[in-house]
């Protein structure tokens, strides 16, 4: 690991240090520093800041950025009213990692693309302009939606997929822009020409909380398909929230993990479902829309039919249709 200056923030202003890299749980950043994928000259430790509470109000749940993944998954309100979020958190990482990993840090974790992690290889995300060997290389875990010619990395978070389905908003304290509330689609940017830029956050910006709106109507579930039954990243995951009334789907929110550079949500998929009676044929139509632009790169071609089957299974579970 390269040496760095260590600063412990005692207030938000300390954390808004444009020369510093923020560290909280450290479960991803310390690993990246050991590999020298990240070599920050200055680390700003925000773990002593007052961002550890989950506050409930009439219209929202405000989750402090330092709430650990364990505490969030086990929180009574989350288990009762936002089970898709508990399920997503519990499907990720290990007990030890969830005890350290934080809400803010989980959102900002980096991809696990093998070329990003191998500093002997080109990677446009790690070394802009060096190329992307993943497209013709080892790409089993990589993206089929939202890619660019420069990068096919996936976002690895499970938590963020559930938050995307729940219409979460991220509270950011920026030294330049003040307090901002961004949806995940507003915060994450697609790789485009510059895969090294993953969010709209600038140096000095600090995630202080995540806000969930009132619990949605209907049933919620999170289904994750992976290479082993525990402690592995998603090949495909689906966070689903669907309400059925009088035999018709009245509301649907669907977000996908393992498929794209950010938690993937496509309103057109939900538009196919809402107002219709649930059926296997309808679910196929929704999958057609989700996957119409999907592009595999060889090893990860299987994700396209797997995403269809996983989406259909989730919709069947949430609507009571037998497949």
């Amino acid at each position: 690991m390269k040496s760095f200056d260590y600063v412990r923030a005692s207030g938000i202003a300390d954390a808004q240090d444009t020369a510093g890299r923020i560290i909280a749980g450290g479960t991803n950043l310390i690993d990246l520093m050991k590999h020298q994928i990240e070599t920050p000259p200055k680390l700003v430790d925000v773990t002593r800041l007052e961002m550890t509470e989950i506050e409930q109000s009439a219209h929202s749940l405000r989750i402090g950025a330092l709430v650990t993944n364990s505490d969030l998954a086990a929180h009574d309100t989350v288990r009762r009213d936002y089970p898709v979020l508990s399920r997503a958190l519990l499907a990720g990482a290990s007990g030890q990692l969830r005890n350290k990993a934080t809400t803010g840090g989980n959102l900002l974790q980096r991809t696990r693309c093998p070329y990003f992690y191998d500093t002997t290889q080109p990677c446009n995300k790690r070394a802009p302009g060096s190329g992307c060997p993943a497209k013709e290389g080892i790409n089993r875990i990589l993206a089929v939606l939202g890619t660019s010619p420069n990068c096919i990395a996936t976002h690895p978070s499970d938590m963020a997929v559930a938050m995307r389905a729940l219409d979460a908003r991220v509270e950011i304290e920026s030294p330049n822009r003040g307090t901002e509330m961004l949806t995940l689609d507003e915060m994450y940017v697609l790789p485009g020409d510059d895969p090294s830029k993953e969010t709209v956050l600038e140096a000095g910006d600090l995630i202080t909380a995540v806000h969930l709106p009132q619990p949605p109507k209907g049933k919620q579930t999170y289904r994750k398909v992976r290479d082993r039954s525990s402690y592995a990243f998603a090949l495909v995951s689906v966070a689903g929230i669907v309400d059925v009334e009088d035999g018709k789907i009245t509301e649907a929110a669907l977000a996908f993990g393992g498929l794209a550079p950010r938690p993937w949500r496509d309103g057109a998929v939900e538009d196919v479902l809402v107002g219709e009676a649930p059926s296997d044929a309808l679910f196929d139509k929704a999958a057609d829309v989700l996957l119409q632009d999907a592009q595999g790169f060889g090893e990860n071609d299987f994700k396209i039919p797997l995403a269809r089957r996983t989406l259909k299974a989730v919709l069947a579970e949430l609507t009571g249709v037998t497949q």
């Binding site: 260590y6 450290g26 479960t27 310390i30 430790d45 364990s70 030890q96 990692l97 005890n99």
Partner: peptide
């Protein structure tokens, strides 16, 4: 490397002692 920090299990290898 699992150890308990303030009663909770964590990975000691992914924890900077100064924190």
């Amino acid at each position: 490397c699992t150890m308990l920090v303030n009663g909770r299990r964590i990975n000691g290898c992914l924890s900077l002692a100064v924190m």
